[in-house]
């Protein structure tokens, strides 16, 4: 753009200059005839500039003219003639020169034109190129935009897709979680149920065992009690404790006096009773019997039967 402007100015100035030169060449004879005019005109053209100067020099010029006019007109004509020849020669020279100059100018112009042409072409090319570039750019931009849009679209789509996928995933995860939760709950329920059942069974078993245990406790006590001959005048405040080991058939394996009453007769009476009660009634149920492998018996001669 900047080049473009400079060229334009240069071109315009060149055209104006050439036009002026051409005009000057055409009107030359008149101007040679009235050089004063020209001069004046020239002066006039500059009048505004040098008014003061004109007023200061007006007086002497008029005096001069008056003195010259009468005597030397011939001289002046000759002089004018020579001057005119001179002028003509000069003019020819000038014409030549002008012609040369015109040629040169023409040449210059041509070159200039060529240059301008070139410039123009260049400019056009450049413009074209720019246009093309622009277009290209635009296109590129458009493409880019398009691409971007597409990309954005794609991204959006992707995002949407992702979102959808995420949603789906989430849904699936939720579903899975729900399933898991359900599974968990189901397992927990089953576990709880199993536990409850086991507990029920355990309780039932325990109750059963406890029932068996209670029953056999009573049976064992009865069996030993029937054999326990209380010593006479025994102190009912006394008590002794025994550890009894039993065989699975109830046979008394061992009787250990683990705490003596201090009365050997009482101790022995109870020990004899335990041995004599052998085999003691014991449960056949192995779990229940396990509790009877080793039993402790505290004897306290509080009551007498029979």
């Amino acid at each position: 753009m900047i080049y473009d402007k400079s060229y334009r100015v240069a071109l315009a100035s060149a055209v104006v200059l050439h036009g002026l030169l051409f005009l000057a060449l055409i009107i030359h004879p008149e101007s040679s005839r009235r050089p004063v005019l020209h001069h004046e005109a020239k002066r006039d053209s500059t009048a505004s500039e040098s008014k003061k100067l004109d007023e200061s020099i007006k007086e002497p010029k008029i005096i001069h003219a008056v003195s010259v006019n009468s005597q030397e007109v011939q001289e002046a004509v000759t002089r004018l003639k020579t001057a005119r020849a001179e002028e003509r020669r000069v003019e020819a020279n000038r014409q030549r020169q002008l012609k040369n100059e015109a040629d040169a100018a023409r040449r210059l112009r041509i070159t200039e034109q060529q240059r301008v042409q070139q410039l123009k072409a260049e400019q056009a090319r450049l413009a074209e190129k720019r246009r093309q570039d622009l277009a290209e750019n635009k296109k590129l931009l458009q493409d880019m935009n398009k691409q971007k849009e597409a990309e954005e679209k794609r991204i959006l789509a992707m995002k949407q897709e992702q979102a959808a996928m995420r949603k789906q995933q989430e849904a699936e995860a939720a579903k899975l979680a729900k399933l898991k939760q359900e599974e968990k709950e189901r397992e927990a329920r089953e576990k709880e149920q199993a536990r409850l059942e086991a507990e029920r069974e355990e309780v039932a078993n325990r109750a059963r065992v406890a029932g068996i245990v209670d029953k056999y406790k009573a049976l064992i006590l009865g069996a030993i009690s029937r054999q326990w001959i209380l010593p006479d005048q025994v102190n009912s405040q006394l008590s002794s404790r025994f550890k009894i080991r039993l065989a699975p058939n109830g046979g008394v394996l061992d009787v250990d006096l683990i705490r003596s009453s201090g009365d050997p007769i009482l101790d022995r009476s109870a020990q004899a009773a335990i041995y004599k009660a052998s085999p003691l009634p014991v449960p056949e149920d192995p779990a229940a019997f396990n509790l009877f492998r080793e039993i402790t018996l505290t004897v306290r001669p509080e009551n007498v039967r029979g």
Partner: peptide, 15 residues
């Protein structure tokens, strides 16, 4: 509770 600890307080008066 189930451990078998028995307490015998009754015997017989027999020769």
């Amino acid at each position: 509770v189930l451990a078998v600890n028995l307490e015998l307080t009754q015997g017989v008066n027999k020769a």
